[in-house]
């Protein structure tokens, strides 16, 4: 893995893959947000009724 550092942005290179550190950070952040959205409990779920129908 080679870290190309120059005035034109920081890039990470590995074989055929080349990606800017910023884009990588954004993608990692999106995956993290997705995982958190799936795993974290959603608030406001109280069993106040079970028979009312949305019509």
């Amino acid at each position: 893995m080679v870290l190309i550092a120059d005035g034109a942005g920081r890039y990470i290179s590995s074989g055929v893959i080349q990606i800017s550190v910023t884009n990588l950070a954004i993608i990692v952040l999106m995956i993290l947000v997705f995982v958190l959205a799936v795993v974290l409990p959603f608030p406001g779920r109280h069993h106040d009724d079970s028979s009312d129908r949305d019509s």
Partner: peptide, 18 residues
């Protein structure tokens, strides 16, 4: 790093997101 064979389509000048 904007060349076609540098994954340039996804990239932006400097350290900005592309």
């Amino acid at each position: 790093n904007l060349g076609g064979d540098q994954w340039g389509m996804t990239n932006e000048t400097g350290n900005y997101p592309g």
